[in-house]
Simulated assay, not measured.
Amino acid sequence: MGSVSDYADREIARLALKADLSRTFARSRLARSIWNRHLRQRLTWAANDPPIPQSAVRLYERPGCPVGLVIDGRWERGLGNWDLSYPATILLSTGKIAATPGCMAEGLEEL
């Protein structure tokens, strides 16, 4: 069983990862363009939509198990989150944009 400090350490690591991915997003004109297109297709800047992507994922079946931010895909209003069983576009921590066929076809997990 993990201790409280183990949990806190994991949460701090997750926050640092998301902060790094947010910086990568801010530097990527293409990623911002894809994200803005996604928001326009939803026809709203709804109050529950974050101004920047916040869903981090890990691609387990790819070399190095890269992490990234979901910047486009199928948004489930009822869940208020991405349905990762469908194809998604992901901004990797390297700054590259990747497409995934979804978690049913590729090892993909939200962090």
Rank of each mutant, 00 (worst) to 15 (best):
N81S: 07
L39V: 15
V70W: 08
V67Q: 09
Y86R: 12
C65W: 07
E109Y: 03
L92G: 03
G80A: 04
G78Y: 03
G68K: 05
E106W: 06
C103I: 02
S5F: 15
R58M: 08
G64T: 10
I52P: 01
A8C: 10
R40P: 00
R14H: 10
R23F: 00
Q41M: 14
D6S: 15
L108D: 04
N36D: 13
Y60A: 07
T24W: 05
L59M: 13
L17E: 12
R27H: 13
R23Y: 03
A47Q: 07
R42G: 02
L111E: 08
A46N: 09
G64P: 06
W45R: 13
R32K: 15
C103D: 02
S55E: 09
S28M: 02
D20A: 07
A46K: 10
T44W: 06
L59A: 11
C103Q: 15
W35K: 09
D49R: 10
P87L: 08
Y7A: 15
I71V: 09
L59C: 06
L69C: 05
R58A: 13
R42W: 13
D49Q: 04
A8R: 15
S55V: 01
C65L: 06
G2K: 14
W35E: 05
S28L: 06
W75H: 08
T89Y: 00
W35C: 01
K96W: 02
I34D: 04
P50R: 01
G78R: 13
A99F: 09
R58L: 11
D20C: 09
R37E: 13
A19D: 08
D9F: 11
P51G: 02
P53I: 01
M104F: 09
D6G: 13
G73W: 03
P50K: 01
P50S: 05
R37P: 01
S85F: 10
L30V: 13
T100D: 14
G78L: 10
E109H: 00
D6L: 13
A105I: 01
I12A: 14
K18F: 02
D20I: 07
A98D: 12
S28A: 03
A31G: 12
S3T: 15
T24L: 02
R40E: 13
S55I: 04
V4Y: 08
W45S: 08
M1R: 10
G68D: 08
A105K: 15
A99V: 11
G102N: 07
L43C: 12
N48S: 10
V67P: 03
W35V: 04
D83V: 04
I34T: 13
L59F: 05
A13W: 00
A47M: 05
N81T: 11
P51C: 02
Y7M: 07
S85Y: 11
R27E: 14
E106C: 12
Y86I: 03
K96M: 07
P50M: 00
P53K: 07
S55G: 00
I12D: 11
V4T: 11
R42D: 07
A56V: 07
D6V: 14
L59W: 12
G107W: 05
Y60P: 00
R62E: 10
T24H: 01
N36A: 15
K96Q: 10
E11I: 11
R14S: 13
